[in-house]
Design a binder for these strands. Structure first.
Lengths: 244, 244
DNA sequence: CTTGAGCATAAACATATGTGAGTGCGGCTG
DNA sequence: CAGCCGCACTCACATATGTTTATGCTCAAG
């Protein structure tokens, strides 16, 4: 089971140095591996999971369903993301998580997390920080949703996903694999699929991106950032002199 | 300084029992009290505060400014809320916090928080949980923003504020004091002030609320909830059998 | 090889919400 | 007491985005 938590450790080390002891604790925390097929739920709203899920491979989306079947995606997760660390303390899921692709998931029992918080205060702070960054992303999305045009919002999302995938080494040249449909993008941005299509056309016409199949290529990063009013600070990807 | 943290303790105790020792630790954590006048910034984007702010009295709003001066409010805080507990770990503020009214604030040094996380794992989990609930609120707002009509969104917000104020004993009859302008409501919901006005008219005409000056009265709770597609679970106000 | 499902795309039309400008009220402030 | 400022409120008009419906492509299944 050793080094299963590689991607998470990599991520946490951006925030602060991990001792060997802490790394071992994380690695031992994984109870088992779970595979979830594309389009299946990883967790459902109302569930009371006993483990938290660490996404090792694949893409996943947190979502809520509203009355008339409309859906809002509130987060998109990539490899290395702890997709429901909060369920450790929040207990009942107030939203579902969907596998956008086939996913490989490491399960960390809440009991183990509790032990970690009892024994490893520094590691606890890093895990906490991890959930705080989720919150920062939520705030950024809220701002983009409320105050940016649909086009700007899309550009913003693309910038974010690009940097997050880059941070885990999933960028080739200027291209990322983004296995997400236009309908799902619509649910993420709060738009209709028709309008998602319009907006993508526009970004293409402006020469900012190419998007064929799952391959999304950034053609003009600077202008894309400008259109999306994007600054990356909220992602906390640079190792500041933070030492939690 | 004793019992300054009353409102916070009250809130944390909804999530789990606090030992006397833990209560004392919290109370001793307050280094000093700060007064901020209405319409002043409590913290600005880019600040690197050395203390976290616990709102003892008043209303505050987290916000971000977008290019053309547009503003998005991502949270509204009331007495008992830890408005920037996350700055303890996130270090740099990625958004500002504005005093909507005169505010009384307790300052908790980050160094003290660090000591608490070293020595009080159970209390640490409660504080963490506190930030996780902020995250749950963000997700709910995102959903309301992306997938509800302006009217429903407004109804949703009113339901939430009503329950949160009720939880801290700030409801008289069916009336809450909501010292927030229509422009600020617009920045919260991502709407123009004109449309905020229209939407409020509609809720009034439907006999759901009365809103004169700062006094907001719920006239028909059940129908308001229905219009706003509101369920309160995400607020974690009921003491479930949670024992972090 | 055929079929059909899922998806991207398109056009015509509908509407929720934004914009700009203006009125009037109430409460500070000089 | 006058004057002004912030705020709620209105109207006419503009537009971004949603809705409905349809087409064609690609790919997997039979």
């Amino acid at each position: 089971m050793a080094l299963m938590t590689n991607s998470l450790i990599l991520k946490l080390e951006k925030y602060g140095r991990l001792s060997d002891d802490e790394k071992r604790a994380l690695d031992n925390a994984i109870a088992r591996i779970r595979i979830v097929d594309a389009d299946e739920d990883i967790i459902r709203e109302g569930d009371r999971p006993t483990d938290s899920s660490l996404l090792l491979e694949g893409f996943a989306a947190r979502y809520k369903i509203v009355s008339n079947g409309r859906r809002q995606i509130s987060a998109i997760h990539v490899a290395g993301d702890f997709i429901d660390l909060h369920s450790f303390l929040l207990k009942t899921m107030d939203h579902g998580v969907l596998a956008l692709t086939n996913c490989r998931i490491a399960l960390v029992p809440h009991a183990t997390l509790e032990r970690i918080t009892d024994e490893y205060p520094h590691l606890t702070r890093l895990l906490w920080l991890n959930t705080l960054i989720d919150g920062a992303v939520h705030r950024e999305w809220l701002t983009a949703m409320g105050r940016l045009s649909a086009t700007a919002h899309m550009a913003h999302l693309i910038c974010e996903l690009y940097l997050r995938l880059k941070a885990i080494g999933r960028v080739e040249g200027d291209t990322i694999q983004l296995p997400i449909t236009q309908a799902e993008l619509g649910d993420t941005l709060g738009l209709s699929t028709v309008h998602v299509n319009r907006v993508l056309q526009e970004l293409r016409k402006e020469g900012l991106i190419r998007f064929q199949g799952d391959a999304l290529t950034i053609l003009d990063w600077e202008r894309l950032k400008k259109v999306g009013e994007f600054t990356s600070t909220y992602l906390s990807l640079q190792n500041e002199d933070r030492q939690p």
